[in-house]
Design a protein around this nucleic acid. Sequence first.
RNA 1: GGGCCCGUAGCUCAGCGGACAGAGUGUCAGGUUCCGGACCUGGAUGUCGCGGGUUCAAAUCCCGUCGGGCUCGCCA
Length: 612
Amino acid sequence: MPGDSSGCGRPRDRPKPNRTRYPYTRRSGNEGMFRPFRESVESALASVLRARELPIDDLGLEEPPEDIDAVLASSIAFRLASELGAAPPQIAGELAAEIDAGEYRYIDRIEPAGPYLNFFPDESYFEGTLKAGQEPGYGALPSRDTSVVVEHTSANPTGPVHVGRARNPIIGDAVANVLEYAGYDVDRHYYVNDAGRQMAVFTWAYERFDESELPEPARDRAEYRMVRYYRKGNEFLENAEPDAVEAAEAEIESILQGLESGDEETYDRVTEVVDTVLGGMRECLARLPAEFDEFVKETRFMRDGSTDDVVDRLKALEGAVYEEDAWQLEFENIEKNLVFLRADGTSLYTTRDLAHHEWKFENYDRAVTVLGEDHKLQAEQLRSALELLGSDTERLESVIYSYVNLPEGKMSTRRGTGVQLDDLLDEAIDRAREEVETRLDDRLRNDELDDDDVERIARQVGIGAVRYDIVSKQPTKAITFEWDRALDFEAQSAPYVQYVHARCCGIENEAAGIDPELNVSVLTSEAERELLLTIARFPGVIEAAADDHEPHRIATYTREIADRFNGFYRECPVITADDDATKSARLALVIAARHTVANALDILGVEAPESM
RNA sequence: GGGCCCGUAGCUCAGCGGACAGAGUGUCAGGUUCCGGACCUGGAUGUCGCGGGUUCAAAUCCCGUCGGGCUCGCCA
């Protein structure tokens, strides 16, 4: 949906925080040749079908199997068989003969292969790919002039980020990245649940208990110090004398009421706790790194009156009922009612989230939310309620992931069970460091890594491996966390791809006296051609991954291009090639491959080391 | 019990209407006087959970069934 749908000042006017990870990409992109080639194929097919007065709504386009070096194929002949009363292979042959490939850009020839039509690229396709690949921003698609807010993580500020939730920032960051590469104007939001009962309990506990009553924090950082109050408070509420619990509940209730009525003093008390804990959590997330343009607090939508407004409009809806001392909304296709106002007049999380999402719709063209599968029902209710309130919910999309569990069960901040993300990252870095050090002795390359390099590589490889492991799988698949599996650097992992990038850098460094040249006429070997074809596909992969919010496709692609590059590396020496023309052309190919790998890794949030 | 998600090689996973179901790992056998061996080459390995159906074509869509996860709070 191009263009502006609700006209309004967008937050993109605000200065963005410094996200230093993206040194060159996403601004000066180059979309390369794949999509233009596909357009040519589409118009070629459409034209021949139109001439026969056949429908053109489904061209049956697909990518051919690996052993066929066509860029695209069509299975249209199957669909026409009954209508034309001929066998698919015959139809394919006729169609191929009726299309004059010369009339269409980038298409060299069209060959029937049984029932299929294969579309082969001409030299300009390879030339254009090599040229586009020279640009650091290769792969990034043209601007769509459409703003998207990606909300992810949004973990309650109750304590350290544990691995159970780690999928959220990792998937969320990659979804935001791939949308950015696909030409959307992206903002990343963390929605802060600072108005719920959990925060009232936390605030009460923080004020009620003294640090001397608490155990040592597991780590010297804000959220680790603070979570001790939260756990202590919850333990108290479960085990203390009834009178004491009652008094505590009264205090908690007064905090909730204070927030609801907009009491400044209450707000300040809660905010102190929220901001302190959140500050620590941000430091943890920054290690991934997952950074945000804005932390949006739900109290904002209570204080500005928009939640009250939503409540009034909900009450006026046909499905609104007052039952069992609460205002509820009935849905046609969801069994469970949405309770949106308690008898005491306080709102609920989803009520505030409705106001939040209306605000998103006012400020962005589209909204994507990354959330755990346990929130799925709530998300469906939210969508339906928004629809009833008059929003166009086509603009809202969810990415659902299932939780990472321990072999022994769920992780819980409140109970203090689970593996902290900090611990996982530390362990990953430690194991990566060991790996670097054991490999130090038998490195072929003579480039003297110093201690800082070792530390850098350990961090890039260790954190990269954790991210890659999570982002490379479909989010809907359940994961049981096991240390050795999560930290396996062999397998299909980040280091394998990172190594290709480092190899490219190594070659480029050695190639000091050689100038890259965009001369595909000397890149004739199968390995060179296949690498170029793989590079050419990159923008198409980005487009598909962005359309479906599936960053794991980028991870699959990184393995393919890494395989292709290693094949090229084996067959085709660059520095020691026979003649200068070959050296220069191959160097250009290495550069294109490096940009492609770097940008694919960038989308995944994995660093691309120059040496390792 | 109702709803949703997942079930593909021993293990971890791609593929999600079309050309013989693919990788990695593990296992077996090999490869570096040559740009980075965290690499590469080759062999072996599958009732795509099971049973029906739709289709010219099903791992892919539909129905049923079994196994696992999530969910069905005036929590978030």
